[in-house]
Amino acid sequence: MIEAPLLEVSGLTKHFPIRGGIIQQRVGAVRAVNDVSFAIRKGEVFGLAGESGSGKSTIARMVVGLYRPTAGTVHFDGSDVSGLIGGRDYRKQVQMVFQNPGSSLNPRRTIAQSVAVPLIFHDYPKAKIADRVAELLEMVELPRNFAIRYPHELSGGQKQRVAIARALAVEPRLIVLDEPTSALDVSVQAKIIDLLAGLAGELGLTFLFISHDLSLMRNFCSRVGILYLGRLAETGSTIDVFGSPAHPYTQALIGAVPVVSDEEAALKPSIPALSGEIPSPSRIPKGCSFHTRCPFAFEPCRQIDPEFTIVGQGHEARCHLLEERTATAATVPVSPVERSAHP
């Protein structure tokens, strides 16, 4: 059961200073990510979901080493890699696919030139680069002759395939997918997800999948973490989190997913939509950060930040309501009936 995780993130925190005044002194901080911990096992697809401004992309950037964490560590395959943008070995192991394929490819460089960058910088034999680029394009189901084209000649989905090919070039073990489909049409999204799932099986890849699209996440991920204001509200297997969400925020998020058929609508729990906007990460509410929007908030929520409560096998949530329940009932896990009866 206990297998060392491929990626282990513990206590990850990132604060961006806000500078102001005449000498640009520090006047505050945007607390983008606060004490986030999770682990991804080899071959797993771990999803991080949350609204805009919940710190998803900041976590992605810390995992690949673009940002240095304010606190906490990132361990990859047992070694500490926090903030290692220059580490060549790590660069070879972890790659990233960005949200906007329009800006993640240099408009002035051909597809082949873009895809060849990682090969050149990881000492791939020069003579074989052209062949390898063609091979990579085939892996992402693009014709070989796309190599000589410029990004503006490609559609969004094709560009994202190129970005995936580029990430695959040095045979990484972990790929961070930062909202890889949110800039694409729905029909294209499904194809990209299919491609990624296929590649994962074929090449033994592990994914950290970041998205705000819960439907995609449910289909693609084996485990998920729900982020709210830079903190994990709930983590667990996809089945548990989507089947019996424990945290009021998760419930509201799932309740907010639009459905297309009457059958789905009938099955959907009737949970009131969240009111208000996500608070600014520069002024995170005291106590539980969700209490300003939580329909069930009571006194302790305004004072004390809740710790994780175990609600099932590998399923945890950070909510005072669950603490009360487990304290009185003293049963773990809470039965699904009881949870659905949850206020």
């Binding site: 950037r61 690949v64 080493g65 673009l66 943008i85 060549r88 660069r91 070879k92 790659q95 990233m96 960005f98 949200q99 906007n100 800006s103 993640s104 490819l105 240099n106 408009p107 002035r108 460089r109 873009s114 960058v117 990682p118 050149i120 910088f121 990881h122 970005a163 580029r166 070039a169 040095v170």
Partner: peptide, 25 residues
């Protein structure tokens, strides 16, 4: 723009980023 971050993650040198990624633009 993300292509600069992408080049950094892909392990490109500073020289490459300055003269091959930024300069052509």
């Amino acid at each position: 723009q993300e292509f600069v971050e992408a080049a950094e993650i892909l392990g490109a040198s500073k020289f490459h980023i300055l003269f091959r990624e930024l300069l052509p633009n």
